[in-house]
Design a protein around this nucleic acid. Structure first.
Length: 297
DNA sequence: CTGGGGAAGGGGCCC
DNA sequence: TGGGCCCCTTCCCCA
């Protein structure tokens, strides 16, 4: 018997912990080398894989990034020039003064690296780009290095899969060929619904919600996980292992005990922003707000 | 309408 | 990799 709450809803008060996922991306390619070993030559803005929302419209020059030396060894030399950090190469050298051989193209290696943090590449508030160069022909706000770029160099080519933007077709094409497809291979799709997971284990756990392998021998009801079945069996046996320390009540489910403990608390956790009325459960607060107490929220 | 109990689901973490 | 457990959440029902 399907139940409506089987459909996952994203509520504003409960955000998935995407930060953990993001933080783990950077661990995909560990390196024993210090990122300070080498410094790349300034990267032309036309080749920076930047995400407009992440950058917020801000760019700066000069543009310096670092890369471990072991990874640089596999980069086609015509595409990039590297220097030891203690060399005499002027980091402040404007992009327009660099010869093409000194410019770092959007190499497969760069795409294979963890997604760059724009704030690591760029220093904020040096100048501001027009919000969409394709819509605005005014380039007067650009600094000299970018004014030297060919018309159209600031156009953006966005990946439909991950929404990352590139200033050149080749940059986008290489991204699609390597990074994005590689990332897509990490997606495990459920054959029963349209959900996708980043790990096979998570997918297998989800598939159990479709196959429901744990069946109650007493009533035939099926569950996705053994401990859900255990909790259900308690409804047959009447076992209530979770006792309230404040009263004589006992519960079969720890979460229900936790909710019950709120009834003993004088301080109710959930407060209506409009009328300041407090509730013991967020569901009660939600019902209160849906009833019309907070028309503005 | 509100408050509370019961039952159940999903994701994450740990071993 | 899988199982167990925890935590949070949701829905239903009833007083």
């Amino acid at each position: 018997m399907p139940r409506s709450f089987l459909v996952k809803k994203h509520l504003s008060h409960k955000k998935p912990n995407y930060g953990q996922l993001d933080s783990k991306k950077g661990e995909d390619i560990p390196s024993p080398h210090s990122p300070e070993d080498f410094v790349l030559a300034p990267v032309p803005c036309s080749e920076i894989p930047c995400s407009p929302p992440a950058l917020g419209g801000w760019l700066s020059a000069p543009l310096i990034t670092t890369i471990p030396s072991v990874e640089l060894n596999s980069v086609p030399t015509p595409l990039m020039a590297i220097r030891p950090q203690n060399s005499d190469f002027p980091a402040e050298r404007p992009v327009q003064e660099l010869s093409p051989s000194l410019l770092v193209a959007h190499t497969p290696l760069r795409d294979a690296l963890p997604p760059p943090d724009p704030m690591e590449l760029l220093e904020p508030q040096v100048f501001q780009l027009p919000k969409d160069p394709r819509l605005s022909g005014d380039r007067s706000g650009l600094p000299a290095p970018l004014l030297g770029l060919a018309p159209g160099a600031l156009d953006r080519f966005e990946c439909f899969d991950c929404c990352r933007a590139y200033f050149t077709v080749s940059g986008l094409a290489k991204h699609k060929q390597l990074h994005c497809e590689w990332q897509c291979h990490k997606c495990f799709s459920c054959k029963y619904c349209d959900k996708e997971y980043v790990s096979l284990g998570a997918l297998k756990m989800h598939i159990r919600t479709h196959t429901l392998p744990c069946v109650c021998k007493l009533c035939g009801k099926a569950f996705s996980r053994p401990w859900l079945l255990q909790g259900h069996i308690r409804t047959h046996t009447g076992e209530k292992p979770f006792s309230c320390p404040h009263c004589s009540r006992a519960f079969a489910d720890r979460s229900n005990l936790r909710a019950h403990l709120q009834t003993h608390s004088e301080i109710k956790k959930y407060q209506c922003k409009s009328c300041s009325k407090t509730f013991s459960r967020i569901s009660l607060l939600s019902k209160h707000e849906e009833a019309g107490c907070c028309p503005l929220s």
